[in-house]
């Protein structure tokens, strides 16, 4: 898929995803070793975006499984199409029971869900299992077979093995500790807040109209806010939003008024806004 780590960075950059060296190295290894990639990090640093970018680079189909509390086998793996099976049984009246039975448990009556879809396809696939921490612990057990052997066992059909291994990305917000068994099967990548230099490049790419001086100030202020002990530190998504807001406001330099008026874009809690205002010597809000 990729020839080197630099190749990964360059090709991801073409799709508009600027990868840090850690991200590029881990993606390269995941492709090379054929292991799933577990991505953790705060909200809004581009975990899901990474999977999308990899799919675009590899020209692969993106299959997405969105996890939530209560997601189960029939939502993640496969389900039998009961209505169709009933129709089939009532349509074939003069057949023997044995014929009908073997027929209604064939592929035709199987509804593939994301995991099975990703395993069965012949074309290159990127499987994104989003917000794995939201799913119940039982769900992790289901994932183990898929992640280690890239196969799914359907009792009535047998085992479906991937003819072409999908590139698997799992994301997690660390809402719950994922089990050791799941972690062991994956390469681990923690995406934190980017370095100043990288963040400047991201802002330049996403908000091209912003002046160079303002870009630098924006990144510096956001960096300072992250160093504070806030309830919700501003993420890359917030930096970009703020840059867009400043562009829309037509500001050409940061000053007290502009910052005071737009602080709500990057900070989402009233406590945080007060704290940041004190830190940045803004007058009372």
């Amino acid at each position: 898929m990729f020839t080197s780590v630099d190749d990964v960075s360059a090709r991801l950059a073409e799709t508009g995803y600027l990868a840090s060296p850690a991200v590029a190295t881990t993606v390269f290894l995941a492709a090379r070793l054929g292991k799933p990639l577990l991505v953790e990090g705060p909200a809004g640093v581009g975990k899901t975006e990474l999977a999308k970018a990899v799919a675009q680079v590899a020209g692969a189909r993106l299959v997405r499984l969105q996890c939530y509390e209560g997601v189960d086998e029939s939502r993640a793996l496969y389900e039998w199409n009961h209505a169709k099976q009933l129709l089939r049984i009532s349509a074939g009246r003069d057949e023997t029971w044995d014929d009908t039975r073997t027929d209604i448990f064939s592929e035709e009556f199987l509804l593939p869900r994301p995991l099975l879809t990703a395993i069965r396809g012949d074309e290159p696939t990127v499987l994104l299992i989003d917000e794995t921490d939201k799913a119940d612990v039982e769900m992790e057990g289901l994932l183990l077979e898929v992640l280690s052997d890239f196969q799914i066992t359907v009792p009535e059909l047998g085992t479906v093995t991937a003819t072409r291994r999908p590139f698997v990305v799992l994301t997690s917000n660390a809402g719950r500790e994922l089990s050791e068994a799941l972690r062991r099967r994956c390469l681990f990548l923690h995406i934190g807040f980017p370095e100043e230099e990288l963040e400047r490049r991201i802002v330049r790419l996403k908000v091209p109209g912003l002046s160079e001086a303002l870009t630098e100030s924006v990144v510096r202020v956001v960096g300072a806010l992250r160093a504070m002990d806030l309830r919700k530190a501003p993420s890359v998504a917030e930096t970009v939003d703020w840059a867009r807001t400043l562009l829309a406001l037509g500001a050409d330099t940061l000053d007290e008024t502009v910052v005071r008026d737009s602080l709500g874009v990057i900070l989402k809690h009233q406590d945080d806004i007060h704290k940041a205002a004190a830190k940045l010597d803004l007058d009372a809000l």
Binding site: A22, L29, E40, G41, F188, H190
Partner: peptide, 11 residues
Amino acid sequence: EGLAATLLHGA
């Protein structure tokens, strides 16, 4: 980064 990705399980 490569060794961290393969050996570690948490941030």
